[in-house]
Nucleic acid binder design. Structure first.
Lengths: 349, 349
DNA sequence: ATGACAGATGGAAGGGCTTCCACAAATTTA
DNA sequence: TAAATTTGTGGAAGCCCTTCCATCTGTCAT
């Protein structure tokens, strides 16, 4: 049997209350006693029993991470950030992978309402409105990462800025017929990225050509998929000479599909059609994909921090943190095209 | 306050013992009582408190998953399998990501010895020998996935078979100068894959040409990295006309690096050098990489099953399950080369 | 009718901790 | 010196369950 505080109390010749106080760094313990208790605890190789602790204190030292399993890529890096920050707080992370949006609500109810966890990190999915409403009288903090709801702390990326930056980049390289290959515009990120695209065009005085904007109708992961990129690129290619010379793609994974379609058609990427992706998944680097980087690791770290703060101070005001994504220039836009018009721009500027 | 069994007992006019028995499907409760209790429980929206349960029964309903974070790709699928199997058992998965092998032992001690979890799934890392020894008197079951130790249940892939199959494939396509781009041979999987390679050559009566075998010296993820593939492919290319016409690569991620190196050198993949990868990570599909598929999802499911069985029957004999990996033919080996020799083989057969 | 036994049930004990109240001892204040 | 604090300390109570033992009721064999 593992040692309990009773064992320690006996050996150290103190009461269990004192042992508990020592272990919890309660101030009103004399230095002598504290040292003695710690020595015994260490000698006995004592570990507090987390469940007993949780039961007595109604703190669990665990958080729940609800993540979508259907969009694989996003999460690794964020999660590393989360854990890096959480580890030394000695918190456990209970992972709940969701395969289908319908499972989201069940998972929240199941875990939050059972008081199994002190807090929740909720990733990249739509917070079910019904839950959000009923949740108001709950006290378990929930932090949304890559998701937004007015009632909860959230960390999001400025998708509009991202779409804008991607488009600006293509324009600055001299492209005139810039199109957008978008995910399902039911999805808010997809909509925002598209808005950024349009805004950049507007600023450049280029009218929006609807034939150069295609968006997926797929509901599954809202069109953020390899296949959707492939299919839509095919459509663009079918436009023949009226096809765009450059495309903003609403996610890297779609860009991968688009690249495959290009290759199949015997076309080359920077030369025939230039591409900018979105996300900067690890794969993007391997493929030399120019893209919009989301600071995932940092988001993970900050998410953990915000959750931790709210745990200590539940009444603080709700914060919504917006990250600005960054353009990463690689090969899929080339630079030859850029040379001429870029200097032109400089002249005109 | 959430309702407790006392609330249910009061409302259903039974004792708490009876409530507990109903909730745990204990047989000796009359149908009437059972129904009444369940009705009240459902009306009060009762959820058992997992920590109280854990404390009283010394079962935790949670398992620990120790996974390496430094090799990103492998897990998603395995993990989905694990969760698919575990979810309906109402088990929680506590995730512990390890960034450096040194953390492995700490994580095990921390969690296993605290009785925080009922069992452990341990992925893709070397079980620290010191822990394995000391562990013998422990009762928390540990199942190794993609890892091996004689004292623990394990699920592994037959890497030798995989290397063999990959090599056979290239040979059957008519390649004579087949090389191997290997990860660090400190790593057991890397060694086994290389053995399979050699065995296939031997069977085909082709002497092993040491200049056609290169292995990474990198210790980090044992050379299973993009960069290592790139660097070693450069070395192969520097061999000029003495370079291999086909390569078995010890992981897909290295193959990606190798492909990049080829592209940079202005060479084309199936034509100049054919490649077979290993792992069949999602990316492989996108890139059309011929590779050796490891049945990850199935391994996850089975891992969960084995762990569950051992939980119910701790004394059963240790099992070591070996999965046979499968060749997935895509584009990186071409098929033109194959046509001729394949028929030749048929003639001779 | 009696005893033996199975089927239901109630609830005390106990799991390992935190927290609070009571109290003793040491220290300060008047 | 007495009174009032302050500082440490012990341990009961309680967190919410499971489990076990005791009890009670009915059945069945005798």
């Amino acid at each position: 049997m593992p040692p309990t505080i009773y064992d320690i109390a006996r050996e150290a010749k103190v009461g269990i209350g004192t042992v508990s106080r020592v272990l919890n760094n309660h101030p009103s313990v004399s230095e002598d006693t504290r040292a003695r208790v710690l020595r015994v605890a260490s000698r006995l190789n004592y570990r507090p029993h987390p469940y007993a602790r949780g039961l007595a204190s109604s703190r669990t030292n665990a958080i729940l991470a609800v993540i979508p399993f259907f969009t694989t890529f996003f999460f690794h890096e964020i999660f590393q950030g989360v854990q890096a920050r959480l580890r030394h707080l000695d918190w456990d992370i209970i992972l709940y992978g969701v395969n289908h949006p319908d499972q989201v609500e069940a998972s929240l109810r199941h875990n939050v309402l059972r008081n199994r966890v002190d807090g929740v990190l909720f990733f990249s999915m739509k917070m079910p409105e019904r839950f959000a409403e009923q949740y108001l009288d709950q006290k378990t903090p929930i932090v949304l990462v890559d998701a937004y709801h007015k009632n909860f702390d959230s960390l999001t990326v400025d998708n509009l800025q991202g779409g804008y930056a991607a488009t600006r980049h293509l324009l600055s390289l001299g492209h005139k017929r810039v199109g957008m290959l978008s995910a399902n515009i039911e999805s808010l990120p997809a909509r925002d990225r598209l808005s950024g695209f349009k805004q950049a065009l507007a600023e450049a005085g280029i009218p929006v050509d609807p034939s150069l904007i295609k968006s997926s109708a797929s509901p599954k992961p809202d069109g953020f998929a390899h296949e959707s990129g492939h299919a839509m690129m095919r459509q663009f290619l079918d436009m023949g000479s009226r096809k765009p010379t450059a495309l903003v793609v609403s996610s890297d994974i779609q860009a991968v599909g688009a690249l495959a379609a290009l290759k199949e058609a015997g076309l080359r990427c920077p030369d025939d059609i230039a591409l900018v992706g979105f996300d900067d998944i690890e794969l993007a680097q391997h493929l030399g994909l120019t893209t919009i980087h989301q600071p995932m690791y940092e988001m993970g770290v900050l998410a953990a921090e915000i959750l931790s703060e709210r745990l200590h101070n539940p009444s603080q005001e709700i914060t919504h943190k917006l990250f600005v994504p960054k353009l990463i220039v690689r090969e899929t836009c080339g630079s030859e095209v850029s040379k001429r018009p870029a200097t032109v721009e400089k002249h005109t500027a």
